[in-house]
C-alpha cells in the first residue's frame, strides 16, 4: 500500500479550538464495527456536525467546509488523545484532510496518522495561537523544509520524526522498510528463542 507523496500543501484551515479532543470525538465507537478503512469520512466528528435528527448543526466549525480547499485541521492541545483506533486518521483522511496541526498531539494518534499519509505536526505555542485565531486562513506546509507558513511574514519550523517524514515524502508505507530487516529479525529469534 502507498499513498500520494506529501511535499508542499497550500490550503485553508478548519479550526477546532478545544483541548483534549479525543479519538472518540473524531470517530465514535459506534462506527468502529466496520472491517474496512474506506468510507469513514462521512462519520468523522459526526456528533459535532449533526444534531439528534441528523441535520447539520449551524454552530459546526465544518459549516462551509469544502474538501477541495480546506485540507488542514488546526486543533487545541493534546489532539487525538485516548483510544488507539486508527479509524480516527482514516476518517480524517477520507473526509479530505491531509494535515493536522496542534501545539501537541497524542502519541498513538500521531504515529497512526503519519503511517496513513495524514501529516500530524506540532508547532510552537505562538504559531498555534495564531492559527487558532484565524480559521479559514490559507497556509502553507512545506514538509521538506519543515516549515509552516501562516503568512509571508509568519513562518515556523516544526519537528517531525525523520523516518516518517521520508516515508510521507516518498508516499510509501513503513512495512516495506520493516520487511527489509527480516534477516536481522530471524537472527534475533535464533539467538533469543
Amino acid at each position: 500500500m502507498s499513498f500520494d507523496s506529501f511535499n508542499i500543501l497550500k490550503s485553508r484551515t478548519v479550526v477546532l479550538r478545544q483541548e483534549n479532543i479525543d479519538t472518540d470525538q473524531i470517530i465514535s465507537a459506534r462506527f468502529l464495527t466496520t472491517t474496512l478503512k474506506e468510507g469513514l469520512g462521512q462519520s468523522v466528528f459526526y456528533d459535532w456536525r449533526y444534531d439528534e435528527g441528523g441535520r447539520p448543526k449551524n454552530s459546526s466549525a465544518f459549516n462551509g467546509y469544502n474538501p477541495d480547499t480546506h485540507k488542514i485541521l488546526v486543533a487545541g492541545a493534546n489532539f487525538g488523545c485516548g483510544s488507539s483506533r486508527e479509524h480516527a486518521p482514516w476518517a480524517l483522511k477520507s473526509f479530505g484532510f491531509e494535515a493536522v496541526i496542534s501545539s501537541d498531539i497524542a502519541d498513538i494518534f500521531k504515529s497512526n496518522s503519519l503511517k496513513n499519509g495524514l501529516l500530524a505536526i506540532e508547532v510552537d505555542p505562538k504559531t498555534h495561537a495564531s492559527l487558532l485565531n484565524t480559521p479559514g486562513a490559507e497556509i502553507t506546509i512545506d514538509l521538506e523544509r519543515q516549515i509552516v507558513a501562516v503568512s509571508d511574514w509568519e513562518k515556523a519550523h516544526f519537528d517531525i520524526e525523520p523516518f516518517a517524514r521520508q516515508c510521507l515524502m516518498n508516499g510509501v508505507d513503513q512495512l516495506g522498510a520493516l520487511m527489509s530487516h527480516l534477516p536481522e529479525i530471524e537472527a534475533f529469534e535464533v539467538k533469543r528463542p
Binding site: 488507539s84 504515529s111 513503513q174 512495512l175 520493516l178 529479525i185
Partner: peptide
C-alpha cells in the same frame, strides 16, 4: 498500537 502496526507485527513480529 494502531492497526497498521498490528499488520507490522503480524508480518514481522516487530
Amino acid at each position: 498500537i494502531g492497526t497498521t502496526e498490528v499488520g507490522h507485527v503480524l508480518a514481522t513480529q516487530c
